[in-house]
Simulated assay, not measured.
Amino acid sequence: MRETPSPLLAERTSICLGGRAIAELHLEAEDDVFRLAERQKQLGGRLFFLGAGTNILAADGDLPVILVRYAEEGEPTVVRDEGERVMVRVGASVPLPRLLRFCAAHGLSGLEGLVGIPGSVGGAVAMNAGSFGCEVGPNLASVRFFDGSQIRDADGSQLSYGYRHMRMPGEVAGYLVLSGTFSLTRKAKDDISLVMRHNFFEKKSKQPVTAWSAGCVFKNPAPDRSAGKLLDAAGYRGKSLGGMMFSPLHANFLVNTGKGSASAAFDLMRMAEDEVRRRFGVTLEPEVRIVS
């Protein structure tokens, strides 16, 4: 296990915001998880499991948290081939786009809708990432995770998931994904690549995929009610404050224009929440994970 003192969250999140944590612990092997409790006791603060930092909004200033990152990557691996059904195991720290490239190269279908989503496989599992009608949860055959005291394996039938959440079996308040095994089907490589390209360009035309952003900042309040449309109707598309802005491309993307701060981000979010509640009687819930 390696350790970095006083890491800056602004350098570890896709929205480029956030103050300093107490330390950052890099887990280089599964067994390193059993050293976390003792190191936390020595350092103080609480543990925060961090993937690629793509859905994180961290407060400014000194933060009472210890960042924990699982550093073992490796490559996606076929662990069982049943003909039409193929099981692919992938480590939590592997970037999601790398897994999708592997699927396209090997003619494995099921995850095409996730194209354009940044971040790591572990984060995608923990958030039950989804797009274009595709979610991580239904494609999981099993998950290997650390529940704070032991390493456990759960098969897909034991998982409880919904819109942007994944619950492991048992009373697990917080957990660290170590790996996931995906159940995929065989399909022509060209067909998979064609769908992925279409989805990517569709997303790029409607979302600020290259901006400093944490992705969608609010959850959709209902399947047929979009947070982005509510924010747009409330006048928040392109609305800015202190270097933060709701994207002109998609009103539910909060963007750091280069000189933003977390305090400005939180203020702009509160303003938007209040206006949506006033106009439509809807309370928006953050989709980003807030670190404070």
Rank of each mutant, 00 (worst) to 15 (best):
A21K: 14
I22L: 04
I22E: 01
E24C: 10
L25A: 01
H26D: 00
H26A: 00
H26N: 04
H26Y: 01
L27D: 09
L27G: 09
E28I: 00
A29Y: 02
E30K: 11
E30I: 01
E30L: 09
D31G: 15
D31C: 14
V33P: 13
V33Q: 13
F34P: 04
R35M: 00
R35E: 09
L36G: 03
L36F: 03
L36M: 11
L36A: 01
E38P: 09
Q42F: 11
Q42L: 09
Q42N: 11
L43W: 12
R46S: 15
R46Q: 12
R46K: 15
L47P: 14
F48T: 06
F48W: 13
F48E: 03
F49K: 00
G51Q: 09
G51H: 05
G51W: 10
A52R: 09
G53V: 13
T54G: 06
T54D: 04
N55D: 01
I56W: 14
A58P: 02
A59L: 01
D60C: 02
L63N: 12
V65S: 12
V65R: 14
V65K: 12
V65N: 10
I66M: 11
I66Q: 15
I66D: 10
I66V: 15
L67G: 06
V68Y: 07
R69F: 14
R69E: 15
Y70M: 13
Y70G: 13
E73W: 03
E73K: 12
E73P: 02
E73A: 11
E73H: 00
G74P: 10
E75K: 10
E75T: 13
E75D: 07
E75N: 12
P76M: 13
P76L: 12
R80P: 00
R80F: 07
R80H: 01
R80L: 06
D81C: 05
G83H: 00
E84W: 02
M87C: 06
M87K: 02
V88L: 05
R89F: 06
V90F: 04
V90Y: 05
V90D: 04
V90G: 02
G91S: 15
V94R: 10
P95A: 07
P95M: 04
P95H: 04
P95C: 05
L96P: 06
L96V: 04
L96C: 08
L96E: 10
P97G: 13
R98A: 15
R98L: 14
R98P: 12
R98S: 15
L99N: 12
L100P: 00
L100T: 01
F102A: 04
C103H: 05
A104P: 01
A104T: 00
A105C: 08
H106N: 15
H106K: 11
G107N: 02
L108Y: 11
S109R: 02
S109D: 00
G110Y: 00
G110P: 00
L111N: 07
L111K: 09
L111C: 02
E112M: 04
E112C: 06
G113F: 05
G113R: 04
G113I: 02
G113C: 07
G116V: 02
I117F: 03
I117G: 07
I117Y: 08
P118H: 08
G119W: 15
V121Q: 06
V121D: 13
G123K: 08
V125W: 10
N128K: 09
A129S: 13
A129N: 07
A129K: 02
A129D: 00
G130T: 05
S131I: 09
F132K: 08
F132Q: 11
G133W: 06
